Amino acid sequence: MGLMDTPRANQLHIGIMGKRNSGKSTLLNALTNQEVALVSNIAGTTTDPVYKSMEIHPIGPCVFIDTAGFDDIGQLGSMRVEKTKQAMEKMDIALMLFNNVNMDEEIRWIQELRKKKISVIPIINKSDVLDDLDELSSLVKSECKHSPIVVSAKEKRGIKELKEEILRQLPENYEVQSITGRLAKEGDVILLVMPQDIQAPKGRLILPQVQTIRDLLDKKCLVLNATVDNLDQALSSLASPPNLIITDSQVFPIVYEKKPESSKLTSFSVLFANYKGDLDYFIKCASAIDRLTENSKVLIAEACTHSPLTEDIGREKIPKMLRKKVGENLKVDIVSGTDFHEDLSSYDLIIHCGGCMFNRKYVTSRVDKAKNQQVPMSNYGVVLAYLSGILDKIDL
């Protein structure tokens, strides 16, 4: 599967980190063999993180993240460093650049990366101009417990060795998992019940549906698409019941009542809860809904940033269903995109979208944050199935 086949959120994310003027942008250009990032001798040329999707042999499709120097100064510098912290949440692997023996800041950032279970590759850059290369290599190896990769990004030396080290450091779960997992296999007939609300752009399918269809076609499944209003016709057109029905979470109860007994049932959102997040934790935490009161506080987190629309599942439907169960005074906060509170302790439940716009590392970093603060966290599809009373009846 190549770059054009793999959505950015599913690609390996490689962060390039270091102090200002350590050669991060030059390294990015050397790795991609393109002039992707602006290069200058002036410290602080890179401000906000630069994201670049590339197909890199022999790594495959990946996203490089060129970050601002974490020793940036002043008010703007602090804001840039904060952007680097946010970008760190998305990284699968971090390339940490060293080019002098004063490495306290690099070690501090490495400690934070390792706390987040992000693989770190130490790199000594600018080897073509360093006088104390042997001393620096020895110090980095001692501090990092890992021999550094020595490169000259400017002269493109050591790039082959760096790519080989990236391959060795690939996360265990890097290989792209199947969205439908064991629920679908070659030759199965799969019925997709598509959303009909106004969140689905006219003339287009939204990303979870596109990715699921691609996953099923790659498995050589037979795929039939329907909407809830022609579900009966779709079912009657089949010689035998579909092996699996994947539905829009919002119509779980309707589809459950109509589905043949032999057909398995799940939703796009539940599939993505497993593909991107921690399905077991989401299911375990769904019962927290029963402990909510009118004095409780719920956080709804959606990956997409869009203007609120009528019938919005996260902003309208789920809050309405929760308030119907708990009481109208239930407080519901909503965040979107990369906004996510550091302190979650005031919330009694977090409900996250499917996360199709995020990579798995970023979604699981949010789950870990919730777990560490002992805050229950679930997912749109799981919550809707729980509120509909059929969570124990769907296939996971």
Score class of each variant (00 low, 15 high):
residue 45 T to I: 14
residue 23 G to D: 09
residue 39 V to W: 08
residue 34 Q to H: 14
residue 25 S to M: 00
residue 43 A to W: 04
residue 46 T to H: 12
residue 18 G to F: 05
residue 40 S to W: 03
residue 33 N to C: 08
residue 21 N to I: 04
residue 26 T to Q: 00
residue 46 T to A: 12
residue 23 G to M: 05
residue 51 Y to A: 00
residue 52 K to D: 14
residue 26 T to S: 03
residue 32 T to V: 06
residue 46 T to Y: 10
residue 21 N to F: 04
residue 32 T to R: 03
residue 34 Q to S: 13
residue 38 L to V: 15
residue 47 T to W: 07
residue 42 I to P: 06
residue 42 I to S: 08
residue 44 G to M: 03
residue 47 T to Y: 07
residue 35 E to P: 00
residue 23 G to P: 06
residue 47 T to K: 14
residue 30 A to P: 12
residue 41 N to S: 05
residue 36 V to C: 10
residue 36 V to H: 13
residue 18 G to N: 11
residue 37 A to Y: 06
residue 32 T to P: 04
residue 35 E to S: 03
residue 44 G to S: 10
residue 31 L to H: 01
residue 29 N to Y: 05
residue 30 A to S: 15
residue 32 T to E: 04
residue 49 P to Q: 09
residue 38 L to I: 15
residue 26 T to R: 01
residue 41 N to V: 02
residue 48 D to R: 11
residue 40 S to H: 03
residue 37 A to C: 09
residue 27 L to A: 07
residue 48 D to T: 13
residue 42 I to M: 06
residue 23 G to Q: 06
residue 24 K to V: 09
residue 33 N to Y: 05
residue 30 A to H: 06
residue 45 T to Y: 15
residue 44 G to T: 03
residue 33 N to P: 09
residue 20 R to T: 14
residue 24 K to T: 06
residue 48 D to N: 15
residue 33 N to D: 13
residue 19 K to C: 01
residue 40 S to R: 02
residue 23 G to S: 03
residue 35 E to R: 00
residue 26 T to Y: 02
residue 48 D to W: 09
residue 22 S to P: 15
residue 40 S to I: 04
residue 45 T to Q: 14
residue 34 Q to T: 14
residue 33 N to F: 06
residue 36 V to T: 15
residue 25 S to T: 00
residue 47 T to H: 12
residue 32 T to Y: 02
residue 51 Y to F: 05
residue 47 T to S: 12
residue 34 Q to Y: 12
residue 38 L to P: 11
residue 27 L to T: 09
residue 17 M to E: 01
residue 39 V to G: 11
residue 38 L to Y: 13
residue 48 D to F: 11
residue 24 K to N: 07
residue 36 V to D: 12
residue 30 A to N: 09
residue 20 R to K: 13
residue 18 G to T: 09
residue 27 L to Q: 08
residue 52 K to T: 14
residue 28 L to A: 08
residue 39 V to S: 11
residue 40 S to T: 05
residue 33 N to G: 08
residue 34 Q to P: 11
residue 43 A to T: 10
residue 43 A to C: 04
residue 21 N to Y: 04
residue 46 T to S: 12
residue 43 A to F: 08
residue 48 D to H: 14
residue 17 M to Y: 07
residue 42 I to T: 08
residue 39 V to T: 15
residue 27 L to I: 06
residue 36 V to Q: 10
residue 24 K to Q: 07
residue 18 G to Y: 10
residue 50 V to K: 13
residue 24 K to Y: 05
residue 36 V to M: 13
residue 34 Q to V: 11
residue 35 E to M: 01
residue 37 A to L: 05
residue 41 N to W: 00
residue 17 M to H: 02
residue 41 N to Y: 02
residue 31 L to D: 03
residue 48 D to Y: 10
residue 26 T to D: 00
residue 30 A to Y: 10
residue 51 Y to V: 00
residue 25 S to F: 00
residue 44 G to V: 03
residue 44 G to Y: 02
residue 33 N to M: 07
residue 30 A to Q: 06
residue 50 V to Y: 14
residue 49 P to L: 01
residue 31 L to M: 02
residue 27 L to V: 07
residue 19 K to G: 03
residue 47 T to L: 12
residue 49 P to A: 05
residue 21 N to M: 04
residue 37 A to T: 10
residue 42 I to R: 09
residue 33 N to E: 12
residue 18 G to M: 11
residue 43 A to H: 08
residue 17 M to N: 00
residue 30 A to R: 09
residue 43 A to L: 09
residue 50 V to R: 14
residue 25 S to W: 01
residue 20 R to F: 08
residue 31 L to S: 02
residue 17 M to C: 02
residue 20 R to S: 15
residue 48 D to I: 10
residue 50 V to W: 11
residue 46 T to C: 12
